[in-house]
Amino acid sequence: AKNITGRMQWSAIVATALGTVLGVVSTLVADRIRWRRDTAERDRDALRTVFMEYLTALTQARDAFSRAEPRPERVSKGHVVLGEHGVYAAQQQLELVAQRPVVERAGRATLSVLDFHDVVVAGHEPDSVEYVRSWRAAREARSVLIEEMKAALRRT
């Protein structure tokens, strides 16, 4: 009888210790999962902010280009105005945090807006083939970029 009681005491101690260990482990696992989720959400928010800053700067530059006066001497000088609108600064931020597909599409979007600038300052009217083609190319490059940004946000 004494031997059985001793075994029951040890089994109770082992069960209590095992329960404590499992409780601690499950708490640590839950904390780790919560930390990962919170970190992922912060990363996604930061990425979303950088994306929005870039898109806003690019759109402002494109809209400013659409109102530009024809000045052939300004062809190939759109990069100056892009800098004034903060496109390059926003693009550099993007390059620091975004994956390669987003960065590449952002580069294409920037170049398409530069091409649009050259068409406008070269004197092409808004109803000309060159103007419409360039405007559509800039809009398409932006749309492709936005889709890639959405995919990146889903992956984050």
Score class of each variant (00 low, 15 high):
residue 2 K to M: 15
residue 3 N to K: 13
residue 4 I to R: 14
residue 5 T to D: 04
residue 5 T to G: 02
residue 6 G to D: 13
residue 8 M to Q: 05
residue 8 M to P: 00
residue 9 Q to M: 05
residue 10 W to C: 10
residue 11 S to R: 11
residue 12 A to V: 08
residue 12 A to Q: 14
residue 12 A to N: 02
residue 15 A to V: 08
residue 16 T to D: 06
residue 18 L to S: 02
residue 19 G to C: 07
residue 21 V to P: 06
residue 22 L to Y: 11
residue 23 G to E: 07
residue 24 V to L: 15
residue 28 L to W: 08
residue 28 L to M: 09
residue 29 V to S: 05
residue 30 A to L: 07
residue 30 A to V: 11
residue 32 R to S: 06
residue 34 R to N: 06
residue 35 W to T: 11
residue 35 W to M: 10
residue 36 R to M: 13
residue 39 T to P: 01
residue 41 E to I: 01
residue 42 R to G: 05
residue 43 D to E: 12
residue 44 R to D: 09
residue 45 D to V: 08
residue 46 A to L: 08
residue 46 A to C: 03
residue 48 R to F: 04
residue 48 R to M: 04
residue 49 T to L: 10
residue 50 V to Q: 10
residue 54 Y to T: 00
residue 54 Y to P: 00
residue 56 T to S: 05
residue 56 T to W: 02
residue 58 L to H: 10
residue 58 L to W: 04
residue 60 Q to Y: 02
residue 61 A to M: 10
residue 62 R to S: 07
residue 63 D to W: 07
residue 63 D to S: 11
residue 67 R to F: 11
residue 67 R to N: 10
residue 68 A to L: 12
residue 69 E to W: 04
residue 70 P to S: 14
residue 73 E to F: 04
residue 74 R to N: 09
residue 75 V to E: 13
residue 76 S to K: 11
residue 76 S to L: 07
residue 77 K to V: 12
residue 77 K to G: 10
residue 78 G to C: 06
residue 78 G to E: 02
residue 82 L to S: 09
residue 83 G to K: 08
residue 83 G to P: 11
residue 86 G to W: 01
residue 86 G to F: 01
residue 86 G to C: 05
residue 87 V to A: 10
residue 89 A to E: 08
residue 90 A to F: 03
residue 92 Q to K: 06
residue 93 Q to P: 02
residue 93 Q to R: 07
residue 93 Q to L: 13
residue 95 E to V: 09
residue 95 E to H: 08
residue 98 A to C: 08
residue 98 A to T: 01
residue 99 Q to F: 06
residue 100 R to A: 14
residue 101 P to L: 04
residue 103 V to K: 02
residue 106 A to N: 01
residue 109 A to R: 01
residue 109 A to L: 06
residue 112 S to Y: 00
residue 116 F to Y: 05
residue 118 D to Q: 08
residue 120 V to R: 15
residue 121 V to H: 01
residue 123 G to S: 00
residue 127 D to Q: 12
residue 127 D to F: 09
residue 131 Y to G: 03
residue 133 R to V: 09
residue 135 W to K: 15
residue 137 A to F: 12
residue 138 A to N: 07
residue 142 R to P: 03
residue 142 R to T: 14
residue 143 S to V: 14
residue 144 V to K: 04
residue 145 L to N: 00
residue 147 E to S: 13
residue 148 E to A: 14
residue 148 E to M: 07
residue 150 K to D: 09
residue 150 K to I: 01
residue 151 A to I: 00
residue 152 A to C: 11
residue 152 A to Y: 08
residue 155 R to H: 06
